[in-house]
Design a protein around this nucleic acid. Sequence first.
DNA 1: TGATGATATGTTTGCTGAAACATATCGACA
DNA 2: TGTCGATATGTTTCAGCAAACATATCATCA
Lengths: 119, 119
Amino acid sequence: MDYPRLRIRIVFGHAEMIGPGKAELLQRIAQTGSIAAAGREMGMSYRRAWELVGTLNAMFRDPLVDSTRGGPGGGGAVLTDAGQKVLGLYRAFEQDVATAGAARLEALQAFRRDIPREK
Amino acid sequence: MDYPRLRIRIVFGHAEMIGPGKAELLQRIAQTGSIAAAGREMGMSYRRAWELVGTLNAMFRDPLVDSTRGGPGGGGAVLTDAGQKVLGLYRAFEQDVATAGAARLEALQAFRRDIPREK
DNA sequence: TGATGATATGTTTGCTGAAACATATCGACA
DNA sequence: TGTCGATATGTTTCAGCAAACATATCATCA
């Protein structure tokens, strides 16, 4: 982990938003094929991962994650087309924003206290 | 409140960051001249407001808020030069980011569910 | 004395972690 | 060929606990 870094959340409504957490969860679901495995990798409880997926699926017109129970391996989860596109757009958004804010960020950091070592 | 909007946090270290909450607190301290009044306006307990100011002052080389006890009116708090500059840079950063991300944001919103009415 | 900053304390909320249950496929075995 | 158990994951519930909160109290200074 290198600092400083940005955490940007896009707030669509009172309880509807997407940020670094949900984006990483989507990405790890795509990689692992499992909601539980993705949540474990991020150190969150399965309940939390499952609730986040439910929120994401309810936020958009089409579900972003498709999960199956039973089946080969006992079950699994995959990103839908909409899920892949939303994740891609969010990553592109992050890139655009980081580039645009670099100058201000450096100016802010000039005010920071010098830290000996950061883990 | 109009949606969508962005919530941006700049993370400098493990527990050192600045986001919408601390920025608004700084702004209200500048307007009211009181940590307690600024906190009240934001619906937070005085303890929380006081802790946030402490975190901010510890994050930067120079304190952002200068508080006096006693005196005319019992005491008060003002933004230092560093405080004014940091707040200004954060607001400018927000502007830059919103402009740079507008196109991606619109693309993302095309995937959203149509909401009848948002409060 | 009055207004505010600083500090201490009791309460509540939210989250986590574990456990129980549901579901569906594969492989073993008679 | 057919049935049953093993297996791995998704779904749901619940008690325990740590973090955050509001409230109350003390300190300070004109």
